[in-house]
Design a binder for these strands. Structure first.
Lengths: 205, 205
DNA sequence: AGTGTGACCATTAACGTGATTGGTCATAAT
DNA sequence: ATTATGACCAATCACGTTAATGGTCACACT
């Protein structure tokens, strides 16, 4: 099952339009090949055979196009996380899978699609909406795991759920956030495992 | 009590020498005023009235001078941390003080001496020896707190001490590491407090 | 209405070049 | 031996200039 993160991105003009799809497709290819910065809007226009001005009928800005592509990436990451969690057993297992999958999927993106990863870094360091939405969805998934663990008695119930969710997410930041992750690579996978252990200990009833 | 972090930094020539002190003093002032990058070695030479070549009798490189200054900064941070911990009551209190002090002291450096903070960022992102030593000393302090907590029965004793120390340090990274901290500013101080809470929960016996 | 563009503008990036920079060394005075 | 330097080099930086870029708009065609 694929996530369709309704892009509240800065688009304009008709939402369903073959030209919009062409733009996105061209952007996906060009960004992945040449990188976000080195790809110009004129490049995209040439690629799809329309004028640059026409592209701006569909996207408010180049960043909006970047956000669309970045959205696809984080959708992929989120889907992997959700799937891994779905295959987990108890809440403890799910939490382990959650943490491990988000990190490994992000690292894999870094190594297989460096150029796309750069967009994610861009987006994260400039706080693009698409990243905010991604982290919110991740936290939603985390909260589900926590709720389940609380119901089954695996996790403690005293700490407010919100606080637990946030603090765990903060603790995982060095392994989830693309900007931080690049700097944490040399610590992987041990550091991630050990922090997961710490988090699970903190959840003990 | 001040820390004298024996600089294994890339110095050369006599360790005790008035000229070395003059260089460091000039560097401290110039770096703080104009920044590390904009300060040239010739500037320092002019400042102390000697030739540039002479400076290289005492320091292997400009970076070594930067490391010396950076070392002073992190010594200051460490001293604050140690002092705060010393004033703490039980291990729980000490851990809270430890986390809070390191962060607030680093943030204060960021705001009061932006230019010096830049050196710290430089040093951290390029993994200078001086930063490695700093984090090791911080972890040493943390380990002492953990040991005390384990002895008094405040903290659990099952998890290997090394792992506990490391995982806690990882969790605090976004609030300790100057590179990360800049990106975590908008989360302060709540995130820090909540992560500390998580860490303490993980330490519950 | 919807589709499509060339001409245009302010801002930014790329470029070449000449000056600086970090760093060394042979040498000199003490 | 210690103190001290000017001359020197390769690599990098600052710089003005030029070209390209993101973005808009009036307009044309269907």
């Amino acid at each position: 099952m694929k996530t369709q993160s309704k892009g509240i991105a800065a688009t304009r003009g008709p939402a369903e339009h073959s030209v919009r799809d062409q733009i996105v497709k061209a952007a996906r290819e060009c960004f992945a090949h040449y990188g976000y910065d080195k790809t110009t809007v004129s490049d995209l226009a040439r690629e799809i055979g329309f004028s640059k001005a026409y592209i701006y009928r569909f996207f408010e800005s180049k960043q909006a196009i970047g956000a669309a592509i970045c959205g696809e990436c984080v959708d992929g990451l989120f889907d992997q996380a959700r799937e891994a969690v779905g295959q987990g057993g108890d809440a403890t297992d799910k939490l382990r899978r959650f943490a491990r999958t988000v990190t490994t999927a992000t690292v894999e993106l870094l190594f297989t699609d460096r150029k796309l990863y750069e967009i994610a870094v861009h987006a994260s360091s400039e706080n693009w909406e698409v990243v905010r939405a991604y982290t919110e969805r991740l936290q939603g998934l985390l909260e589900e795991i926590l709720k389940e663990g609380r119901e089954t008695g695996e996790f403690e119930r005293k700490t407010p759920l919100d606080e637990t969710r946030r603090s765990i997410f903060y603790a995982f930041k060095p392994f989830f956030d693309p900007v931080f992750l690049e700097r944490s690579l040399d610590l992987l996978p041990d550091a991630q495992t050990e922090v997961t252990g710490l988090v699970l200990r903190s959840l003990a009833p």
